[in-house]
């Protein structure tokens, strides 16, 4: 996966509360066998007219100022619903590397950093300011600095954020979880030996 260190980019405002995974990428696009190619259907129900398939000019990512956005500033509980990792895959394929909100659904929160996408939780007051910054469009970029855990808003104001130290380490270095876990293989083996003795029916 690609490292995430520091990103300066256009931020798109998406003030929808409970933006669910069916809005991010509807199930009918889940017939794919790869992780790529989903960007064109990111936010499909919002981006396109369901009957004609034409672009909805009112949707933020269809506006010229935001077509190249790499940051989303989103409403509370972003990514609720399904476990589909197609949601972060679609965001990444479109070019989004960072989502800022007051809260994320748990599974989406776990899935995103595994694909090099940084999710940042901020307070409601901070979100309001960042949403205002994002509404300035392409002329006002935002900077997200993971190393220093700091967002620079469009007006230059700084917002610091917390991040899980393990997720930060993996994102900064582009590390693969499985490789890290396999370094602990002896602990896994001894766990299995112990469990086999105490709950043998799980190994029948």
């Amino acid at each position: 996966m690609d490292k995430f260190t520091k990103l300066t980019a256009v931020a798109a405002p998406l003030p929808i509360v409970n933006c669910d995974t069916d809005k991010i990428i509807p199930a009918r696009f889940l017939k794919t066998l790869t992780r790529t190619g989903l960007g064109k259907n990111l936010f499909d129900p919002l981006r396109y007219d369901p009957e004609t398939g034409e672009e909805n000019p009112d949707f933020v990512l269809n506006k010229p100022a935001y077509r190249n956005a790499e940051i989303l500033v989103a409403g509370h509980n972003f990514g609720c619903g399904s476990s589909r990792e197609h949601a972060p895959w679609a965001l990444l394929d479109y070019g989004i590397r960072c989502v800022i909100s007051t809260g994320f659904a748990d599974i989406f929160y776990n899935n995103s950093p595994k694909n090099g996408i940084l999710l940042i939780k901020v307070s409601p007051e901070e979100l309001d300011k960042l949403m205002e910054g994002a509404e300035r469009g392409a002329n006002a970029t935002m900077t997200v600095d993971l190393e220093n855990q700091e967002i620079t808003n469009a007006d230059g104001e700084k917002v610091s954020f917390d991040v899980d130290p393990f997720k930060k380490h993996c994102l900064l270095n582009g590390l693969d979880d499985i490789g890290l876990t396999l370094q602990k293989e002896t602990s896994i083996e001894s766990y299995e030996e112990k469990q086999k003795a105490s709950e043998p029916w799980l190994y029948a």
Binding site: S83, T181, E192
Partner: peptide, 21 residues
């Protein structure tokens, strides 16, 4: 019992574990 993403499906297949809090 809980839902996981595809990266975690792979993680479980390879290691029979998950990284969690």
């Amino acid at each position: 019992a809980f839902g996981v993403g595809t990266s975690e499906v792979e993680h479980v297949l390879a290691t029979q574990t998950l990284i969690q809090r």
